[in-house]
């Protein structure tokens, strides 16, 4: 039984790699600067965010160490999450012309879209390396390289799992309810502000907002798996310390549960796609 699925995946592995290749190649094809935008886009948006929020949230006394790097870490991860899940969401409806005519394992479409976004995300990480090198060479911010930086791949991997799970769920939902595409746009905007990207959670002093002695708002923000993932990433890159293991277990568990739900929903509903496309 399990073998059947693996064999099928093995047969269509070329489709997976072709779509990944296509998405990466086409992303910036018609732009003048081309692939260079992979670096330029996060760099420029980070500069904008530093200019807008730097005064309020960028005080080093609050423990952000280096605000541009702090911001870039959060933004890169958030951007990967929102881009990949959005692409996955549109992937089934966008490939309707093929799905209606040829048999292909349909999960290839959300999966390949997430992987292709992951490839551009990994390339865009070089901007982080470049910026860190700049600050270390030309300024005296207390940044230093440590073996922990290698561990940064762990939160990245957990994020990839989360995106696959969420992407599968969204791709199923978007076939049956087109509305989800608009709703999800609003949701990702909310998520941008709910995730400590340009602020640090303790800067908001949310522990003072309590309901029955319980800091409910702060707990809600901490329940966001992106909070754990971004925090782990910053521990490795920015602070050079081991992450809080609560973050690790929570985000990994959350991602695995999402994947299980996503696979289950996809498997249950994939034969019905054709009737709605």
């Amino acid at each position: 039984m399990k073998n059947k699925y693996l064999r099928n995946f093995y047969k269509y592995r070329f489709l997976l790699s072709e779509i990944v290749r296509k998405n990466v190649r086409l992303q910036y094809r018609d732009s003048v600067l081309g692939m260079f935008w992979t670096f330029l886009q996060p760099l420029l948006t980070t500069i904008v965010l530093v200019l807008v929020f730097g005064r309020v949230f960028g005080k080093s006394s609050d423990g952000v160490v280096n605000y541009p790097i702090y911001l870039l870490c959060g933004r890169l991860l958030y951007e990967f999450y929102s881009q990949s899940t959005k692409r996955a969401m549109h992937s089934i409806t966008g490939s309707a012309s093929v799905i209606k005519k040829v048999y292909v394992p349909k999960y290839i479409y959300p999966l390949s879209n997430i992987i292709s976004t992951f490839v551009t995300f990994m390339i865009s990480l070089t901007v982080l390396v470049a910026m860190m090198a700049y600050f270390m060479l030309f300024t005296d911010t207390p940044l230093h390289l440590s073996p922990y930086i290698l561990l940064a791949l762990v939160p990245v991997f957990i994020l990839l799992l989360l995106c696959i799970g969420v992407g599968l769920i969204l791709s199923v939902l978007s076939v049956f309810f087109k509305d989800i595409e608009y709703l999800y746009d609003v949701f990702t905007l909310l998520l941008f502000y709910m995730t400590p990207i340009f602020y640090k959670l303790n800067q908001l002093h949310l522990d003072k907002v309590t309901v029955g002695g319980f800091p409910i708002v702060e707990y809600m923000l901490m329940a966001n798996p992106l909070y754990s993932i971004v925090s782990m990433f910053r521990s490795c890159v920015l602070y050079s310390v081991m992450w809080n293991w609560h973050w690790f277990f929570y985000s990994l568990g959350f991602s695995l549960v999402t994947i299980i739900i996503g696979v289950w929903a996809f498997y249950k509903k994939q034969d019905k796609f054709i009737l709605y496309l």
């Binding site: 070329f14 489709l15 790699s17 779509i19 296509k22 012309s97 093929v98 209606k100 005519k101």
Partner: peptide
């Protein structure tokens, strides 16, 4: 229908084949 319109003919040969 299996073609990507932004892709060149040559690239589409491989995409279509992979499909």
């Amino acid at each position: 229908a299996g073609f990507d319109s932004n892709y060149s003919g040559k690239e589409n040969v491989f995409l279509y084949g992979a499909t």
